[in-house]
């Protein structure tokens, strides 16, 4: 695991900074954190986080996991993603972990889980296919 590479990657991703995304570790496992910030709200009256902020956060988690498990200088490109929203995102810190189900030479399949207080009660899940940069 190359956490310096991940920090460099997030630093060149202004979108991740706009969402407030930070890398962290929980029980020794790499986890991405999106702290609660007001600009991530999608609905004031519920209130709830914006579904787009949650899916964007999970997309960053997928790319981060690919950066950690490959040594490419350029970033993987999303081909397609599918997000299931399981419950509303409360105005609380949100966590995400990604798992690579298959990594070929050109394509990777990644699954992501996002949760708030309870890992076993996720607020959203995502799976996506990514085009990997050509090996240098």
């Amino acid at each position: 695991m190359d956490s310096a590479a991940l920090k460099r990657t997030l630093a060149r991703m202004p979108y991740a900074q706009s969402l407030g995304v930070k890398p962290t570790e929980i029980d020794g496992v790499f986890t991405l954190l999106m702290p609660y910030i007001e600009s991530n709200i999608g609905n004031f009256s519920l209130p709830a986080l914006h579904g787009g902020a949650i899916s964007g956060f999970m997309e960053i988690a997928a790319i981060s996991q690919l950066i950690l498990s490959t040594d490419h200088a350029s970033l993987p490109k999303p081909i397609g993603i599918n997000v299931d929203y399981l419950r509303k995102g409360d105005l609380k810190p949100t966590f995400a972990r990604a798992k690579i189900f298959k990594q070929g030479s050109r394509i990777a399949n990644v699954h992501v889980r996002a949760w708030q207080e309870d890992y076993d009660d996720p607020i959203a899940t995502m799976h996506g296919n990514y085009l990997l940069p050509k090996a240098e």
């Binding site: 060149r12 991703m13 979108y15 706009s18 899916s55 956060f57 997309e59 350029s74 997000v83």
Partner: peptide, 20 residues
């Protein structure tokens, strides 16, 4: 520019497009 996904290409992040 706050929504860029890669400062090298200056392309917006997929997450911004999916939010839209």
């Amino acid at each position: 520019p706050d929504l860029i996904g890669d400062t090298e290409t200056r392309v917006l992040h997929g997450g911004a497009v999916s939010t839209l």
